[in-house]
Design a protein around this nucleic acid. Structure first.
Length: 241
DNA sequence: TAGGCCATCTGGTCCT
DNA sequence: AGGACCAGATGGCCTA
């Protein structure tokens, strides 16, 4: 929704010379109003009715015509600056609105992602970055489970044992102690993803790299039906700052 | 009170 | 030209 004209003009620098922030401060004759109407209408602004021109005392020694020309030039410049500023302001307000909407959509998508991830027993809401890291690991773990199942390796029964994502509680225990997290390079116990130096590589062979700094006790690191030793090598490729 | 997380605003850049 | 996307700045709220 476009901001009202008053809002658009409220912070005009050039409006400071006028006591009013109303655009009508700059409109002094029918000609001006007529010229500004189409411009303003395209930007959703409204041009108020003209107001009478201010009374200006004569400057001695300068012809009346020249004084009038100067006054008109000055008013025209102020008007154009004000309109330009208000148009820019109007576009900014619209851009802000779109950006807000875009971020809301992004958050809705994150909420949708949270809803299909295993949830904590105490219903702790994952932060944005935790959600992304957790989702990454969860997908990797599921894929690895299917791979093991297809190979008939230990943990292969996990395909059948896997619970639906919403089947909380499936994440064991509180976050690991700080010492545990630190030993794995995590920033904090509650933020289990550590610094990742490697670019995304083949997720099927993550355990070889020392750069994957996840700890076995991390709550975002455990999934139902998966062998522990497998999960302990789950990578997090999302950089942690 | 410091730090983390978040929402919002903003200007720049890229794309259609 | 206008919209989408992005990153930096800022301020509010919450928690340890």
């Amino acid at each position: 929704m476009p901001a009202p004209l008053e809002t658009c003009l409220s912070d005009l620098d050039c409006a400071s010379s006028n006591s009013s922030s109303d655009l009508s401060s700059f409109l002094t004759d029918e000609e001006d109003c007529a010229r500004l109407q189409p411009l303003a209408s395209t930007s959703g602004l409204s041009v108020p009715a003209r107001r009478s021109a201010p009374t200006i005392s004569n400057v001695p020694g300068v012809p009346d015509e020249e004084q009038e020309r100067r006054r008109r030039r000055g008013r025209a410049r102020v008007r154009s600056e004000a309109l330009l500023h208000s148009l820019r302001r109007s576009r900014r307000v619209k851009a802000n609105d779109r950006e807000r909407n875009r971020m809301h959509n992004l958050n809705a998508a994150l909420d949708a992602l949270r809803s299909v991830l295993p949830s904590f027993p105490d219903d702790t809401k994952l932060t944005k970055i935790e959600t992304l890291r957790f989702a990454y690991n969860y997908i990797w773990a599921l894929a690895e489970t299917l791979r093991l199942a297809d190979q008939g390796l230990p943990g292969g029964g996990a395909r059948e044992r896997l619970l639906p994502p919403q089947c909380a509680p499936c994440l064991p225990g509180p976050p690991s102690p700080a010492s545990d997290a630190e030993s794995w390079g995590s920033g904090t116990a509650a933020s289990p993803c550590g610094t990742v130096a490697s670019p995304l590589s083949d997720p099927s062979s993550p355990s070889a790299s020392e750069d994957f700094t996840y700890g076995p006790g991390d709550p975002l690191f455990s999934f139902p039906g998966l062998p522990k030793d497998l999960l302990h090598t789950t990578p997090c490729f999302i950089p942690y700052h």
